[in-house]
């Protein structure tokens, strides 16, 4: 674009620095607070970033609360729902991308719209139904619940990705004598591997961060870490350092993962409505 004036760059850097500080400060506040003692929390504004760090808060939450179990639950449910949704969703996406049939676009729209429905609408009846089926407070139940948002996401994303691969690749393999499924497995799947990886990362992050379903559908056995966070607060408001430590345990893996998914961020967050 055109060369910019000096004033433009002053304003540009100034606003980016301000907004950058606004963005980073709360995350830093969480991080430093998790390394403080309860006393240090009250030490006043001057001591916010100047203190002797300690791991006491982490030690305390791991010793007094089943953090490890909740972390394992969160991981199992996230991965379980992601694998399940990816398997069936990719197969369905193939049907939508490779075949032209009456009502296809309506069907694709129906699947997309499920992803956009208010989660509370599904949560109420699912609670009642799970109550009847003895699925409350089970990881299986939570995996099923998370499928309501992961499966439509996978179908919608993978349909776009598969459409972008020329069908001639599979046809050529089939002309060479391969079966249809063989061609899909040997030709299409390897090409799609990076896309599948990206979609998987998004599914895992969505599930990892999920709160409403986990709050309603779990009690103790299948409880995930996000649900434990508010408990730390009601437990005692003064335990901010403990809440911060639990929060850090929860968000640190997500931040690592999100840097991995960087390249696919636009597509994943806009569900392909905007091409990157």
């Amino acid at each position: 674009m055109s060369p910019k004036s000096r004033l433009y760059w002053i304003v540009c850097y100034g606003i980016l620095a301000l907004y950058g500080a606004f963005t980073l400060l709360p995350i830093l506040y969480l991080a430093v607070s998790s390394f403080k003692t309860q006393q240090q929390i009250y030490d006043g504004i001057a001591a916010t970033f100047w203190f002797t760090p300690t791991l006491d808060s982490y030690r305390f939450i791991f010793e007094t609360k089943p953090i490890l179990q909740m972390l394992t639950n969160t991981l199992i449910v996230s991965v379980g729902s992601t694998v399940f949704s990816l398997f069936f969703g990719t197969i369905a996406a193939y049907g939508l991308a490779r075949y032209n049939f009456r009502g296809r676009d309506d069907l694709a729209f129906y699947i997309l719209s499920i992803r956009m429905f208010p989660p509370i609408v599904a949560a109420l009846p699912i609670f009642m139904i799970f109550n009847g089926l003895n699925l409350l407070d089970t990881k299986t139940g939570l995996i099923i619940a998370y499928t309501t948002f992961n499966l439509p996401f996978v179908v919608w994303m993978m349909t776009g990705f598969i459409k972008a691969v020329p069908v001639q690749l599979e046809e050529a393999a089939m002309v060479d004598g391969q079966s249809h499924l063989g061609a899909i497995w040997d030709i299409l799947v390897p090409v799609l591997r990076p896309s599948i990886f990206a979609v998987a990362i998004f599914c895992i992050i969505f599930s990892w961060n999920e709160f409403l379903f986990a709050l309603i559908l779990t009690k103790s056995q299948a409880k995930t870490l996000p649900v434990a966070i508010p408990e730390f607060i009601t437990w005692t408001e003064v335990g901010w350092n403990y809440v911060a430590a639990a929060g850090m345990v929860l968000v640190a893996p997500v931040l690592v993962f999100s840097f991995l998914a960087q390249r696919y961020m636009v597509r994943g967050m806009s569900m392909g409505a905007i091409k990157d």
Binding site: L30, N209, P230, L250
Partner: peptide
């Protein structure tokens, strides 16, 4: 610097609420 501007979006909303609750405490 761009990736750092995107960080909040990926954080667990419950943790975001917690951070701000304590910032406003």
């Amino acid at each position: 610097i761009f990736p750092f501007f995107l960080m909040p979006m990926m954080l667990t909303p419950v943790v975001v609420g917690t951070i701000w609750r304590f910032l406003f405490n």
